[in-house]
C-alpha cells in the first residue's frame, strides 16, 4: 500500500438484508471492492442509480461498516470509533434544501465541525467561518442568515465551507451538483476543482454524470451492480475507456 493512501478499501463489500429472520432477503449493494484514495487526489465514482456508489461512499467514511473486507482510514483499520477521526472526514450531499439545519444560522452550521472537535473559542469560530465563506465565494456576512434565505447554489457552497473548516484529510462529494441548475452546476464544479487543488485533501466525487466526474476527478472509477468495472486516469475517459460499459456511459455524453 502506498504510504499516502488516506482511505483504502480491501476487498470491501456490503450486503443488506431485510425481512424477518425466517425469510431474510439479502442484497449485495457493494460486491468486492479494492480502492485506494491518495492524498491530493480526487477519485470520481460514476454509475447509475442503484449501482452502489452512495453505499461505497458511506463505507469510505466509516458510516457503513463493510460486511466483508476492511476499510483503512489514515492507514489504520477503521474500528467504528470516530473519536480519533473527528474533523478528519467530511461529506457534502445531494440536496441543497437539506444541506443545512434549517434551525441554525449559517455561521453555526459552518462552525459545527470545530465545535464537535472542541477547538477554538466563539470568536475564533466566527473568524474562521468568515474566512471559509469567502473561500467558497460567499460574503462573510451570510453567516448571520438562516438557510431558507439562501439559494440552492449558495447552500451547497455553505456545505462545502462547513466540510473544509477543519482541514479534513478526506471529503466525499455525493451528487453535489445534480439538483442544481446548469449554470450553477458549473460554478460548484469549478469551486470543488479549485479548492481541492489548493488544499490537497483526498476526495471521492460521486455522480451519475460521467462528464462532471471526469472534469473534476484525477482518476475515474466506473461502478455497475456493486462492483468497480474500471478505474483509470480521467484522461482515459476523454479518449477510449477500456470497459464496454464505460464506453456506453461515454456515448451518452458525446
Amino acid at each position: 500500500m502506498p504510504a499516502d493512501a488516506v482511505v483504502s478499501l480491501r476487498s470491501a463489500g456490503v450486503t443488506f438484508s431485510s425481512g424477518p429472520p425466517w425469510d431474510r432477503e439479502s442484497l449485495d449493494a457493494v460486491g468486492t471492492v479494492d480502492l485506494d484514495i491518495h492524498r491530493g487526489e480526487t477519485v470520481g465514482l460514476v454509475g447509475e442509480s442503484g449501482s452502489g456508489k452512495t453505499t461505497l461512499g458511506r463505507v469510505c467514511l466509516g458510516m457503513q461498516p463493510p460486511s466483508r473486507g476492511a476499510v483503512l482510514i489514515d492507514g489504520a483499520p477503521f474500528d467504528g470509533h470516530r473519536g480519533r477521526l473527528r474533523g478528519r472526514l467530511q461529506i457534502v450531499g445531494q440536496h441543497p434544501e437539506w444541506a443545512l439545519n434549517p434551525r441554525l444560522r449559517v455561521g453555526t452550521s459552518v462552525a459545527e465541525p470545530m465545535a464537535i472537535m472542541g477547538i477554538g473559542t466563539r470568536a475564533e469560530h466566527r473568524k474562521r467561518v468568515g474566512v471559509m465563506l469567502e473561500m467558497v465565494g460567499l460574503e462573510a456576512s451570510l453567516a448571520g442568515r438562516f438557510p431558507h434565505q439562501l439559494s440552492g447554489g449558495q447552500r451547497q457552497r455553505v456545505a462545502i465551507a462547513r466540510s473544509l473548516i477543519t482541514d479534513p484529510s478526506f471529503v466525499v462529494f455525493d451528487e453535489v451538483v445534480s439538483a442544481l441548475d446548469m449554470s450553477v452546476q458549473a460554478q460548484i464544479l469549478n469551486l470543488i476543482k479549485d479548492i481541492q487543488a489548493a488544499q490537497g485533501f483526498a476526495a471521492l466525487f460521486i455522480s451519475h454524470d460521467l462528464a462532471a466526474v471526469r472534469y473534476v476527478a484525477h482518476r475515474v472509477a466506473v461502478m455497475l451492480d456493486g462492483d468497480i468495472l474500471e478505474i483509470a486516469p480521467s484522461e482515459r475517459f476523454y479518449g477510449r475507456p477500456a470497459h464496454p460499459y464505460s464506453r456506453q456511459l461515454q456515448a451518452a455524453i458525446t
Binding site: A211, Y215, S234, E235
Partner: peptide, 24 residues
C-alpha cells in the same frame, strides 16, 4: 453561449469550463 460553455463534456483534457456568475 455561456450555457454551452458551462456544461462539462466538451472541454479539453485538463481544460476549464466557464461558469456563469449569479443565478437565473
Amino acid at each position: 453561449d455561456a450555457l454551452l460553455k458551462a456544461a462539462p463534456g466538451a472541454e479539453a483534457i485538463g481544460g476549464k469550463i466557464e461558469a456563469i456568475p449569479g443565478r437565473p
